[in-house]
Design a protein around this nucleic acid. Structure first.
Length: 479
RNA sequence: CGGGGUGUAGCGCAGCUGGUAGCGCGCUUGGUUUGGGACCAAGAUGCCGCAGGUUCGAAUCCUGUCACUCCGACCA
């Protein structure tokens, strides 16, 4: 017990201080390190491996939907950034500028990309002439820089890794289809790979992307009731095309502007994984992105035959899952705690007693349930268990999300919920920007989205002004 | 950009009524251990964030500065 206490002290309990808990977990689990550059982070091997798995799963889905990867420069000439008015206004406050090359001052300063719309547009202008050149379905994996004031590992850093899809289409309908298609890809990915349930919906005018005609979003709810915008998909209409002159000749020899989209997710998703699934013992990783899915721990490894058996099992499992053995000379108890902290979904213990009985012990990270499995059933039982863990994590997260989703008809209720039990607040809105601004001013909550799958009219009146309500909005405090 | 906090060994901290640096963890070596963070022994590790100043003498007092971090406003 005394030792339990000592261990627990290393990670601040969630209920006591969620922010400190988050910081403790990312450091103890060796996901990141702070760097000497303000607001930037070192993503360590264990953290980067999660990102690689996210990339692999997403990239597969992008290819399946016809997209190709490209790479654009990381610098944008100021004049290029200036071309779309709303866009530059949205990003100007947070771009980093390169003013010198070596010791020479540049004649035109370059911004370090905060996003690459302008570069893609500049390129599309050159390579799109005919309807035969459409659609262009490009994606790029890269990092971008936004000079944020307040940073937090994974959730907000000066530089972050992401993917940005940029597409150009012949018609408005096609562009809209693409926008929704990719939003659905994100939502499906979050649920089936990250075990994170999301609310899909449209952003209000106030919250939409700088330069977009419409922005769609997936919103997730963290353990502490704070919402996290986890991915966005934008329909640009022909706004950028007009600003950049991206035109093609259609079948009837008419010049037309293209219709564009863009969509992205970032390393922020790792923050979401931590804050949705984690507990007071540390990380709980969804099996499908866990760098190690099964950790094999030999017990009494100095005894004859134990290491050999453990290696053999690891080798067998490595063919079907991401398995690793820890045969370091730490004690088993130390290893148990270590891999729990790191969120490894399944622990496999094998010791002299097990070898005698022809079995191993499997322990789930999510429920800590212990099962004895005959050695010859490992190849079927391990993948089954990993699937069960995924299912359980998604169910648990969905339950929590539902519990923390409230409805407010009056502002008094709205305020009480925000102050006492943060989460999603379903409330009607008149569509007036002034009400949205006022709600944010008074409560700190912002409109997260106008949901697709929930159009209940919980009231006839706007929760703020009492005038006729247009639509249901999900509100919440956001990271 | 406003408000707090912190800079001393790899990490967490003590030392701050001035006298030249210590504890715990970790690390190295050897041995005993090993089914929930083992034990013994012997080691190694410091521009006390940086720059001035006061003083015979500064981790300690004064001034400035930088960095990180947390909370707000802005944003993925």
């Amino acid at each position: 017990m005394a030792q339990d206490k000592k261990f627990v002290e290393e990670i601040t309990p969630m209920d006591q201080d969620f922010t400190q808990w988050y910081t403790d977990v990312i450091k103890k689990a060796e996901l990141v390190d702070y760097s000497s550059v303000r607001g930037c982070m070192v993503i360590k091997p264990y953290g980067y491996a999660i990102w690689e798995n996210i990339q692999k799963e997403l990239d597969y889905r992008f290819k399946q939907t016809g997209h190709e990867n490209v790479y654009m420069p990381m610098f944008i000439p100021e004049s290029l950034l200036q071309k779309e008015k709303d866009h530059v206004e949205g990003f100007a406050p947070e771009v980093a500028w390169v003013t010198h090359g070596g010791s020479e001052q540049l004649t035109e300063r370059l911004c370090v990309r905060p996003t690459s719309e302008t570069l893609f547009c500049d390129h599309y202008k050159n390579c799109i002439q005919s309807y035969r050149d459409l659609p262009k379905l490009y994606n790029q994996w890269c990092s971008v820089v936004r000079w944020e004031k307040n940073t937090r590992p994974f959730l907000r850093t000066l530089e972050f890794l992401w993917q940005e899809g940029h597409t150009a289409h012949a018609t408005a309908e096609e562009a809209q289809e693409e926008t929704i298609r990719m939003l659905n890809v994100y939502a499906e990915f979050c649920e089936n790979v990250l075990a994170i349930p999301v609310v899909k919906g449209q952003k209000t005018e106030k919250e939409k992307f700088a330069g977009a005609k419409a922005t769609y979003t997936i919103e997730a709810l963290m353990h502490n009731g704070i919402t996290l915008q986890s991915g966005t998909s934008h329909n640009f209409g022909d706004g950028f095309a007009r600003a950049f002159g991206i035109q093609y000749t259609d079948k009837s020899n008419q010049l037309q502007y293209v219709h564009q989209t863009s969509w992205g997710v970032t390393t922020r998703l790792i923050g979401a994984i931590i804050m949705v699934h984690g507990d007071d013992s540390g990380l709980v990783l969804p099996p499908r992105v866990a760098p190690i899915q099964v950790i094999v721990i030999p017990i009494s490894q100095h005894k004859e035959g134990v290491l050999e058996k453990a290696s053999e099992i690891t080798a067998r499992l490595s063919g079907i899952v991401r398995a690793r053995m820890d045969d370091s000379d730490k004690t088993p108890g130390w290893k148990f705690n270590e891999y729990e902290m790191k969120g490894v979904p399944l622990r496999l213990e094998v010791g002299p007693k097990d070898i005698e009985k022809g079995q191993v012990v499997l322990v789930r990270r999510d429920t800590r349930e212990k099962v004895f499995v005959p050695m010859d059933e490992l190849e079927t039982r391990v993948p089954e268990l990993l699937d069960e863990i995924h299912k359980n994590l998604l169910e648990k997260a969905t339950r929590l999300r539902n519990e923390k989703t409230y409805t407010a008809v009056e502002m008094s209720e709205f305020r009480r919920i925000i102050e006492t039990t943060p989460g999603f607040i379903r409330a009607m809105w008149c569509g007036d920007r002034a009400c949205e601004d006022a709600i944010k001013e008074e409560t700190g909550a912002t409109s997260r989205c106008i949901p697709f799958d929930d159009n209940e009219r919980v009231s006839d009146k706007c929760v703020y002004c009492g005038k006729e309500a247009k639509t249901l909005v999900y509100w919440g405090k956001a990271y």
